[in-house]
Design a binder for these strands. Sequence first.
RNA 1: AGAGAGUUGGGUGAGUGGCUGAAACCAACAGUUUGCUAAACUGUCGUACGGGUUAUACUGUACCGGGGGUUCGAAUCCCCCACUCUCUGCCA
Length: 423
Amino acid sequence: MLLVQHIRDHYDQVLLGLNKRNLKNAATALQQVLDLDDLRKSAQTQRDQFQAEANTISKEIGTLMKEGKTAEATAVRDRSALLKTQIKELEEQHEQAEAELKALLYTLPNVPFTAVPAGKSAEDNEVVLSHGEIPSLGEGKLPHWELIKKYDIIDFDLGVKIAGAGFPVYKGKGARLQRALINFFLDQALAAGYVEVQPPILVNEDSGYGTGQLPDKEGQMYFANEDKLYLIPTAEVPITNLYRDVLVNTSDLPIKNVGYTPCFRREAGSWGAHVRGLNRLHQFDKVEIVQITHPDNSYATLEEMSAYVQGLLRQLELPYRVLRLCGGDMGFTSAMTYDMEVYSAAQERWLEVSSVSNFETYQANRLKLRFKGEDKKSQLAHTLNGSALALPRIVASILENNQDPDGIRMPKVLHPYLGFDRI
RNA sequence: AGAGAGUUGGGUGAGUGGCUGAAACCAACAGUUUGCUAAACUGUCGUACGGGUUAUACUGUACCGGGGGUUCGAAUCCCCCACUCUCUGCCA
């Protein structure tokens, strides 16, 4: 959520940023924010004055009663009653302005960082770099949804029986590959200084608001109605919310956490020709890295996290490219995002396997995640996160890129985790 | 799921409807002193939103799990909700 004070102080910059996102009526919305805030303030100032008077009167009455001056006390009481109705009126004004302001702020996305390119869709994203060679497979190359049947390692039909489309069943070497990747990713993160956490995979409403999935993406999360809990779409939600309502010391920063969780996404309305096989699932596994940093360091950290994720892809021997997302394609809460895509050689297309973002104070403001600076004033920290990595599309590209007539070659780094080197 | 108990500042923990933004202790921070360490002593020490100021100072209001009510006045009384703990039940 954007800070009103920030909008006030950097109006032009915020407006420019929101325009970069192609947000309609940005200027109107911002002006409305300021108006509502003014309204809120003036109502509060007046209410506080009346309340102060009422408080004084109450004390007077107490004294008068003690001294037995009942008649005088009753007289003062009338004034108090009048104040009370005025206070109530102003209170309502204040609450309404505040509620409207909050609702409006919830609809405003984060302001893109200056380095974010303008643009409307994925086509306008900027390719920052590419790495690795795109393998040229001969005739008879199979897409991963054929390979998994051929080698009987992932079964979608069984998943349909148990749950529905988009819930695969991993079997035999397929299951082992999942476990190997998870352990490999976790071990790498540990080596890079991340502290592992195993969070709940169902979260309450407050957590959903904390990281911005609510109210923006309400319909995209599975909801356990009986207990009012959401199944997490990403470990970002529970891990970042560990720090909701937390005031940390500057010396505690940066905080680095990594966690493996299954992720659940309803993906309502996003099924089509390009989502066969592992390309899009309702349930998938992901290892997520989260950092909480001092505002001065967050962009250096973003680069560090990007480099870290690229290191994983190199070790897995996958050709990849890094995109800097344009304003129109960036997530609602992000100030800048890098997407990492691997090349899937049978499908002959790039697949997004990681998204690394800096949210600046956007999440921290909702979370009330602050640190005490050297001037002993508390200020909002910056939050970042990234997939490191999401499994299904990694699996898809490993299977497709490494296929040969004799089977599928496994990346070297996984051999110790797998206990085999081919499928 | 049933019954009971509870929820107060960073922590522990007092608190008869006005003298309580809240005792005390601990922690933290600053300082004094004994050669250093330890100890002792003194002081500071919640958050949010306003007013005010170049910035301080100063100042108002709210907050004792959340919401509502009674009252001139609520941490304290009443109602609803959430959560935690204990026992019983169930269970990996």
